[in-house]
Design a protein around this nucleic acid. Sequence first.
DNA 1: TTATAATTTAATATG
DNA 2: CATATTAAATTATT
Lengths: 201, 201
Amino acid sequence: MASTTLCKAGPMMSPNLQKGSHLVESKPAKCSFSIERILGLETKKTFTSSLSKHHRPWMDQSNIRAPVAADNQGWKLPVMSYNLPIQVGTVRHLLEKESAAIYDKCCNGGERLTYKRELSWYRGRRPRTAFTRNQIEILENVFRVNSYPGIDVREELANKLSLDEDRIQIWFQNRRAKLKRSHRESQFLMVKDTLPANIQE
Amino acid sequence: MASTTLCKAGPMMSPNLQKGSHLVESKPAKCSFSIERILGLETKKTFTSSLSKHHRPWMDQSNIRAPVAADNQGWKLPVMSYNLPIQVGTVRHLLEKESAAIYDKCCNGGERLTYKRELSWYRGRRPRTAFTRNQIEILENVFRVNSYPGIDVREELANKLSLDEDRIQIWFQNRRAKLKRSHRESQFLMVKDTLPANIQE
DNA sequence: TTATAATTTAATATG
DNA sequence: CATATTAAATTATT
């Protein structure tokens, strides 16, 4: 690993973090996530007040201490654009054609699907909620009875558990996804185990 | 159902969850969200059984001779895997002594896998991939150009490097985390020096 | 012990 | 709401 730790705490990286979008300059203009676009978003520091779709109360100064759960202390404002691509010219160790091919894929063609994610970081991400054991216990118990609690139940849970109703909803969403995943996995394993007949001892 | 394991393979896991909703008693006895109410809201869905994405291909028989990487030699699928005495859904969360017993029974002698590895496999963890220096070099080079390679690039890399595409994806995930970590650190160091933070404000 | 591959899950985005 | 994806936080291996 030590062979090419290039980006690690490089002297040039962190200063850029403080300067906002300057980092973007170092990549080629032809990238479809254009500088303009990023800059455009960059200027929207007032975004939080727009109240449109993305309300992010946890970005309010007053709410930095997340009222959320037991221990979410120590949340800091998001770091921006730490991962924007760096100068392509620095790629020397790839074989020529490999570099070319990969570069084409990265910066010339498609491949832009992840940049919406990246943009979201400009707006900050809610600090991950760490549910307590007790909270999860209760959530699980309710989940077993009803994996689709309505708003009223969610509100009650929120009350009881001192959580935002939003957290409850997300939790159930994720929990349902998990259940479904595990079903898929079980089925897969069962299919797999059915093929060899020597299962039965 | 076996899927209510929240806390990883931790010792406490969730034995309580199997007991039904008794645990609700750990909070004030008066639950305003009554079971009846919850039941009333219940609207179960039938989960579709799509086996599209197999979750643990390395547990698959057809992959016993891991075609995976250049140098993952030495990893073999344990013999005992074919007569799992336990329900599939619970495989990954066996207690240690259970695993030990099974290990003793099935793998006494012959196998040259270490106990730990055996246990690890049995509990469903993919054997750690050891990337070669060259693989890492190329991955690092691509990372500098694009830290969010899409599926195309990942596949191409997988091809070139004789790795699973999944390994590539995980690698980039971990690499981004590492970069972010290092940024956090250097940013912290820098805050002491200067107060440039509000430049663009 | 450290670095990092692998896992789990909360949060985000999309349809 | 389902689904896919990502980051955060861990676990655990080397």
